[in-house]
Write a protein that binds this DNA or RNA. Structure first.
Lengths: 192, 192
DNA sequence: TATTGTTATACTCTATAACTATA
DNA sequence: TATAGTTATAGAGTATAACAATA
């Protein structure tokens, strides 16, 4: 168990890494915003999957996933074939063009990181990855396990959802993204 | 120097920590979005400062800083007094109300992190903070030093700025946020 | 009735560009 | 001419809610 000053510093750092993310986003290929890049990356690493699975890996709501997927599908980078087992579902898979875009993507980010992290050791990078993965796990697992207690200390009202003073509904609670933490296994890449 | 698979995984994790950030944002006090929280936190930790300094610490453009600052100023959480040394500048400082909000803020985030990271050791949290800080440094320092070379491998055009195919202008390059990495010293808190 | 996915709407954060005031 | 800060505008990401189709 750590202490308060540490937690505040951690929160600060979490906020500040946004600048690094934006730096990475700036070098992405044309018409490939960060959301699209994440979709391609996850499909490349885990192979074909359904929307719901992708939303889980992205750790965002499925409505958001739907938009990202629509974007990459419009550009021909993925295809959505019907799921024979469940007609409500669609199976997402990379197209050859999508694979090529993913290659480009990967090359660019690797290039930037190679330049920026030239003085990092292999172990340091690995440790950062491990700790960030565990951080996600500590949040995601908790969210899946505990039904948001945190009731014992509220002073002012939470910000909650925008203009939703009524609190989360049952359905929205069920839809809350619950990341599965694929990354615990080291980049296994299951090609379809 | 690390290898490619690691870099891709790092990029993925950087993208995924967004979910943790959003979890933290959800418990913020009323009318205090993440941007406002960051302003209050930095003013609390470093004491009064000018806009430009704050923008540096936030690692965002000054126009963004200006909006966040306007938001917290409208709520009476900070005040902007004229800088006697430079009439263009304004000195930002927390008001008592702002201090109170910051307390509330701090309590909430600490509470959440205490709950979520109950099985983390002090050393682990500290290590994560240290590595994230260094990550920011590796990016920020580089940006301040090298004038964006990365020219030797472009295949497709970069996404650059939205609809700005003309590349960065001199002024925009000069305005690019260059974080100073305050966090290297352990939460010194210089109270105005 | 519950679940999968889509779409409409709204909110936050960010950057660029144009502008004012001061150095 | 250059710098500090503000404001207008636009783009990207996200969530909630309502909806359609299927289980």
């Amino acid at each position: 168990m750590a202490e308060q000053a540490q937690f505040e510093e951690l929160a600060r750092q979490l906020s500040a890494v946004g600048a690094v993310k934006r730096d990475l986003a700036r070098i992405l290929p044309h018409e490939c915003p960060a959301g699209s890049a994440a979709v391609l990356t996850l499909l490349g690493r885990h192979g074909s999957m359904r929307m719901s699975k992708l939303a889980e890996l992205l750790a965002v709501d499925m409505s958001v996933t739907s938009r990202h997927v629509a974007h990459v599908a419009e550009r021909g980078w993925i295809e959505r074939s019907p799921d024979p087992a469940d007609k409500r579902s669609r199976i997402l898979h990379l197209t050859p063009t999508g694979e090529a875009t993913l290659q480009d993507l990967s090359r660019r980010s690797t290039e930037l990181l190679t330049e920026r992290l030239s003085d990092w050791s292999d172990e340091e990078v690995e440790q950062l990855i491990r700790l960030m993965t565990r951080l996600r796990a500590s949040f995601g697992d908790c969210r899946a396990t505990a039904p948001h207690p945190r009731s014992a200390a509220g002073t002012a009202p939470d910000r909650g959802s925008p203009k939703a003073t009524t609190g989360p509904t049952l359905t929205s609670a069920a839809r809350a993204p619950t990341p599965v933490l694929d990354a615990l296994e080291p980049t296994t890449r299951t090609p379809a």
